[in-house]
Design a protein around this nucleic acid. Structure first.
Lengths: 251, 251
DNA sequence: CCCTGTCGTTATCAAATGACGTAGCCGGGG
DNA sequence: CCCCGGCTACGTCATTTGATAACGACAGGG
């Protein structure tokens, strides 16, 4: 399992970045596009299951996801794994490593992924010459912080069923923003173990809880496909605010 | 309970900022100091128990804590409260509100606090003219993200006792970095309810767990004073890395 | 084709945690 | 001075959640 297969291509010039077509992402100004285009050093393909970044490493790169699913996680000495967040197209990976020197979490691909590679060293140029983009980087960090706040609320204060409903709604909405859903369905590369590790529940209890949601006809999840059968009931169970997603930047 | 008492003074010029004397904070360059001095619009006193920022508000200010304890939290409809993090001197408050327009959490003072006030509008000038400071802001956001990651790991994967030990070590270390401890003791303004709301445990169970730690002579907590009697045993219980704290920026 | 590993599922039992009720201490305000 | 509210403490019982084991379906590799 090579951590970085030699699939460094240059298929997508930034001007034709596949993310640009999605409404959820804000468009670049011309000079920003020029800089980002120069900031980008290549592309990277990662197979499902690959470790993209490892906790403790000094990663030399910053990455933006162009397609595919991944997740950030931390391990405990006893082998317990906490999945911190799921990573989707438009997400920026490795900022912590670039700013604080050392990654404090690992990143793994859930599906095959296609990523954009930036040189960590050049981040400083970005701050110096493009305050608008620097602001965007901070926006992304701040947004991640907000999401983590919500997950902390979820783990700390909700029951297993509400927690699960919240997570599924959260992931579905994010996928929907990126045009990865079809109606109430989405191709869902997580296993029940991933959900368990994200919610701080045991695998068995996660299974019980998911079945409970399925029996109540709130969801259906088979063959890597998740369907939200009754989004209103789920939202109600999870105290979910179905606010419209605002446009977000990406690098 | 006035949310913002009219205690807007100007006692501490940035050149004599009380935080500057602490080793944990990195010193400013001269031109940075000049800008920050100009960026700062005043000072603010908040009594213990005061709400400093409210979820949903469009706060007009950014704050840096000069002294005192506070906490960030979110409420659920059923009244459950999740405390997201404790706020100590040097912490920067309101960045989310400044960048994303609306605060997604509230902030409350645990003890009397003394804060430095910045104009939200001027944040843009900071990004435009002082990339070094912009980088520092991102550093702070990134660090908060890292802390939230650790708390998520804590809530999701550790037992009540380990969770509690971890939290106490975390808070003690942060207080220690800021010179607020004396030996193994610290004046600790949280109640057991706060600890419970931070750990996602019931008050009763938090009490049980704390007593268990006290009976094992790992901690002593009376009269608003917390003492870590056996830091090694606590660290062991909590899988705590006692890494040396690195210097951090502040604004 | 079988072997093997992953994934989802279920049953049983044990342990962790929550809910509720109660009590004592203490400090502040009338 | 007393009352009251916040905080800590503790007992009992209910509920949630975890641990373990076992099984079937399925996919991939030899």
């Amino acid at each position: 399992m090579a951590p970085r297969p030699p699939a460094l291509t240059r298929k997508y010039p930034c001007e034709r970045c596949p993310l640009r077509d999605l409404e959820i992402f804000r468009p670049f100004k011309r000079e920003e596009l020029e800089f980002v285009s120069h900031f980008k050093t290549g592309e990277l393909t990662a197979e499902a299951g690959t470790t993209i970044m490892a906790e403790g490493s000094h990663s030399a790169h910053l990455l933006t996801v162009l397609s595919g699913w991944g997740f950030r996680y931390k391990l405990l000495e006893n082998g317990n794994r906490q999945i911190l967040n799921v990573i989707l197209p438009g997400d920026f990976i490795g900022l912590q490593g670039a700013i604080m020197d050392e990654m404090q979490h690992s990143v793994e691909a859930l599906s095959d992924m296609f990523l954009c590679v930036f040189e960590r060293e050049r981040l400083w140029e970005l701050y110096r010459d493009h305050p608008g983009l620097a602001f965007d980087v901070t926006w992304l960090a701040s947004r991640e912080e907000q999401v983590l706040d919500e997950h902390l609320l979820n783990l700390g204060q909700r029951t297993a069923a509400a927690r699960t409903a919240f997570l599924l709604l959260f992931l579905f909405s994010r996928a929907q923003d990126r045009g990865m859903t079809r109606g109430a369905s989405v191709t869902f590369p997580l296993t029940q173990q991933h959900v368990a590790d994200m919610l701080g529940l045991s695998l068995v209890h996660t299974n019980r809880t998911l079945n409970q949601l399925a029996r109540k006809k709130l969801i259906a999840w088979q063959d890597r496909t998740l369907r939200l059968l009754d989004r209103d009931a789920l939202a109600d169970l999870a105290n979910w605010d179905d606010t419209v997603s605002v446009q977000r930047p990406y690098i």
